[in-house]
Computed example of a mutant assay.
Amino acid sequence: MNDQQKQFILAFMAYAAQRDISLEKLCRLSGINLQALTSGGPVDISRKQFNDLWLNACHLSGDPLFGLHLGESLQLAALGIVGEIVKSSTTVGQGIEHAVALTPLITDLFGMTIERDAGTFTLRLIPDEVNQAASPFAFSQMADFFLVFAVHELDGLILARIRPERVTMPFADKAAVELERVLRCTPTRSGGDYSITFDLKYWDMPILTADYALQESLLQKINAVAPGRLTSDSWQDKVQQYLLKNAYLGIVPLEEIAANFNVSPRSLQRKLKDEQVTYQELADDVRKSLALHYLETGGYYAKEISYMLGYNELSAFSRAFKRWTGKAPGGYRRNFE
């Protein structure tokens, strides 16, 4: 198992822990040595173990769309590869071409191709038939993961919420609503085709060079909040971590977080109420924490920070910041210059 595959497995484990899955039980059922996996040394996971890992994660979480939700939440966990793509690309198209070339570093269950026509470009998964037959469950979960990960990473390249033109994949009727929410378009059912199509206008868009620095800054902030931790102690902590990980496109709504953890919005609100906190209070705390972090690093203007935190107007951000600190953003920054 190479470094990128191990990084993926560790991100998988971190997400499983957030979903209240016992990592010891998950690894025991899958025949994986958890201590060896987290020790930092070399580790090898067989094809059967990898397939069993997905099976048991879906079973223990009660979530048949575990791969889809993992892809929705994993932006920063894959920062190493994404950072290299950003640093070596100037346009979205170049970034996609580099990402496709890096697919074999993550999985040998399939490859990816890019198809372009007059108005769109399509990312298509090409199964390795032998490996797919040997690990059918892992294949379907990884395919779901890659499709949604593509959407969310394109978001990150241009700091905008992109809506695909079309998504084609096999799926069960009961999964259709959740697939549409996560993938942002109504999926088209197929027998075995996995593909996602975007408007060609995105292809030549420049990658925002600040994006890599922004994601790196966010990662530093997350690590400072919870250094080296794979587990979450409370629903408050889980929600806070999710908000931090996804904050580079603003504060995500309660409904998205609830769906990612496979609970209803009302149930999540009740769990937070039991911990004597509300979602709005957590969202406000994350906004405040990130605003202070960005200003203290000195790399962003107040207008940029306002946009990154989801405020439509700089004046709204300034009012909130003054409520938090008693100072305007500009006055606070001068303390660190």
Rank of each mutant, 00 (worst) to 15 (best):
G67H: 05
D233F: 07
D3V: 15
V286Q: 02
M142W: 10
R270D: 11
K201W: 02
R334K: 14
A226H: 10
L10D: 01
S61E: 01
V82Q: 11
I114Y: 06
H59V: 08
Y294D: 01
I32R: 05
K273M: 08
M13H: 01
E165L: 13
G156E: 05
E153V: 12
I207A: 02
K273H: 10
K6H: 09
L76A: 01
E337C: 04
I85H: 03
A210Y: 13
L282K: 02
G228L: 10
A226C: 09
R189D: 04
L309S: 00
R189T: 13
E337I: 07
G80F: 08
M205H: 11
S61F: 04
L159H: 09
L292I: 08
M112D: 10
L26D: 01
S267W: 06
L218E: 08
E178V: 13
Q49M: 03
S89N: 08
R287I: 10
G40W: 12
N51H: 08
L123H: 02
I106G: 02
F149G: 04
R184T: 03
A302T: 05
V100N: 01
P164Q: 05
Q18R: 15
L65A: 13
I305D: 04
D20Y: 09
E304C: 02
A213W: 15
G310R: 02
S89L: 04
L102H: 11
A172E: 14
L295A: 01
V151H: 01
H98Y: 08
A302E: 07
V239I: 15
R163V: 15
P164N: 00
F317C: 03
M13A: 11
R163M: 14
T107S: 13
D274M: 11
Q269F: 02
P136R: 01
G111R: 13
A176N: 08
R229C: 11
V286P: 03
L74Y: 10
N335H: 12
N223C: 09
I106V: 14
K245A: 11
Y311P: 03
G67A: 12
R166P: 00
F146N: 05
T103D: 04
G111E: 15
P187W: 04
I196V: 15
F50D: 06
S89W: 00
A16W: 03
F12R: 06
D173E: 12
T209L: 13
Y301G: 10
L249D: 08
M13C: 08
E255P: 04
W235H: 11
D199K: 06
E97I: 07
N260A: 15
S315D: 09
A160N: 14
A14H: 13
F137I: 15
Q236F: 03
